[in-house]
Amino acid sequence: GSKLPPGWEKRMSRSSGRVYYFNHITNASQWERPSG
């Protein structure tokens, strides 16, 4: 298991139950796992 880039964390969408990734530094969110 590799770590996520700085700022990123795994989140669960309440509406759909899907996992997404959220960056608390930039407030960005995306479905794809961030690389870096």
Score class of each variant (00 low, 15 high):
residue 1 G to V: 11
residue 1 G to W: 03
residue 1 G to D: 14
residue 1 G to N: 13
residue 1 G to K: 10
residue 1 G to Q: 12
residue 2 S to A: 12
residue 2 S to G: 13
residue 2 S to P: 12
residue 2 S to D: 15
residue 2 S to T: 13
residue 2 S to E: 14
residue 3 K to I: 11
residue 3 K to V: 13
residue 3 K to T: 14
residue 3 K to E: 14
residue 3 K to Q: 14
residue 4 L to F: 03
residue 4 L to K: 07
residue 4 L to D: 07
residue 4 L to M: 06
residue 4 L to G: 03
residue 4 L to R: 02
residue 4 L to A: 02
residue 4 L to H: 01
residue 5 P to T: 03
residue 5 P to L: 05
residue 5 P to A: 05
residue 5 P to D: 03
residue 5 P to W: 04
residue 5 P to E: 05
residue 6 P to K: 08
residue 6 P to D: 10
residue 6 P to Q: 09
residue 6 P to W: 11
residue 6 P to V: 10
residue 7 G to T: 02
residue 7 G to I: 03
residue 7 G to K: 02
residue 7 G to S: 03
residue 7 G to W: 06
residue 7 G to Q: 05
residue 7 G to V: 03
residue 7 G to Y: 06
residue 8 W to A: 01
residue 8 W to R: 00
residue 8 W to P: 01
residue 8 W to H: 01
residue 8 W to T: 01
residue 8 W to L: 01
residue 8 W to N: 00
residue 8 W to S: 00
residue 9 E to Y: 06
residue 9 E to N: 05
residue 9 E to G: 06
residue 9 E to L: 08
residue 9 E to A: 06
residue 9 E to I: 11
residue 9 E to S: 10
residue 9 E to V: 14
residue 9 E to T: 10
residue 9 E to C: 12
residue 10 K to D: 02
residue 10 K to Y: 07
residue 10 K to C: 13
residue 10 K to S: 08
residue 10 K to N: 02
residue 11 R to C: 15
residue 11 R to H: 06
residue 11 R to F: 06
residue 11 R to W: 04
residue 11 R to P: 01
residue 11 R to I: 06
residue 12 M to E: 08
residue 12 M to K: 12
residue 12 M to G: 03
residue 12 M to I: 15
residue 13 S to H: 15
residue 13 S to W: 08
residue 13 S to V: 11
residue 13 S to R: 06
residue 13 S to I: 13
residue 13 S to F: 09
residue 13 S to D: 15
residue 14 R to I: 13
residue 14 R to F: 09
residue 14 R to D: 09
residue 14 R to Y: 09
residue 14 R to M: 13
residue 15 S to K: 14
residue 15 S to Y: 12
residue 15 S to T: 14
residue 15 S to R: 15
residue 15 S to Q: 11
residue 15 S to G: 10
residue 16 S to E: 08
residue 16 S to Y: 09
residue 16 S to F: 08
residue 16 S to D: 10
residue 16 S to I: 06
residue 16 S to G: 09
residue 16 S to R: 08
residue 16 S to A: 09
residue 17 G to P: 03
residue 17 G to Y: 04
residue 17 G to F: 04
residue 17 G to H: 08
residue 17 G to V: 03
residue 17 G to Q: 07
residue 18 R to F: 06
residue 18 R to K: 09
residue 18 R to L: 07
residue 18 R to A: 06
residue 18 R to Q: 07
residue 18 R to V: 05
residue 19 V to H: 08
residue 19 V to T: 09
residue 19 V to W: 13
residue 19 V to G: 02
residue 19 V to L: 06
residue 19 V to P: 08
residue 19 V to C: 15
residue 19 V to S: 07
residue 19 V to R: 04
residue 19 V to E: 08
residue 20 Y to T: 00
residue 20 Y to W: 06
residue 20 Y to V: 01
residue 20 Y to A: 00
residue 20 Y to D: 00
residue 20 Y to I: 02
residue 20 Y to N: 00
residue 20 Y to E: 02
residue 21 Y to E: 00
residue 21 Y to D: 00
residue 21 Y to V: 00
residue 21 Y to A: 00
residue 21 Y to R: 00
residue 22 F to W: 09
residue 22 F to Y: 15
residue 22 F to G: 00
residue 22 F to R: 03
residue 22 F to E: 00
residue 23 N to D: 02
residue 23 N to Q: 02
residue 23 N to K: 01
residue 23 N to S: 05
residue 23 N to I: 03
residue 23 N to V: 01
residue 24 H to N: 12
residue 24 H to Q: 10
residue 24 H to K: 13
residue 24 H to V: 15
residue 24 H to A: 11
residue 24 H to W: 14
residue 25 I to A: 09
residue 25 I to V: 10
residue 25 I to M: 09
residue 25 I to W: 08
residue 26 T to N: 05
residue 26 T to L: 05
residue 26 T to Y: 05
residue 26 T to W: 05
residue 26 T to M: 05
residue 26 T to F: 05
residue 27 N to D: 04
residue 27 N to E: 07
residue 27 N to Y: 09
residue 27 N to F: 10
residue 27 N to A: 08
residue 27 N to L: 14
residue 27 N to V: 04
residue 28 A to W: 10
residue 28 A to F: 08
residue 28 A to V: 15
residue 28 A to T: 14
residue 28 A to S: 11
residue 28 A to I: 15
residue 29 S to V: 15
residue 29 S to N: 05
residue 29 S to Q: 08
residue 29 S to H: 12
residue 29 S to R: 14
residue 30 Q to Y: 05
residue 30 Q to L: 03
residue 30 Q to A: 03
residue 30 Q to D: 02
residue 30 Q to W: 04
residue 30 Q to V: 05
residue 31 W to H: 05
residue 31 W to R: 07
residue 31 W to A: 05
residue 32 E to F: 08
residue 32 E to H: 11
residue 32 E to N: 08
residue 32 E to R: 07
residue 32 E to W: 11
residue 33 R to C: 08
residue 33 R to D: 09
residue 33 R to G: 03
residue 33 R to N: 08
residue 33 R to Q: 08
residue 33 R to T: 09
residue 34 P to Q: 01
residue 34 P to H: 01
residue 34 P to W: 04
residue 34 P to D: 01
residue 34 P to E: 02
residue 34 P to M: 02
residue 35 S to Q: 12
residue 35 S to K: 10
residue 35 S to V: 13
residue 35 S to N: 11
residue 35 S to D: 13
residue 35 S to H: 10
residue 35 S to W: 10
residue 36 G to R: 10
residue 36 G to E: 13
residue 36 G to M: 13
residue 36 G to I: 13
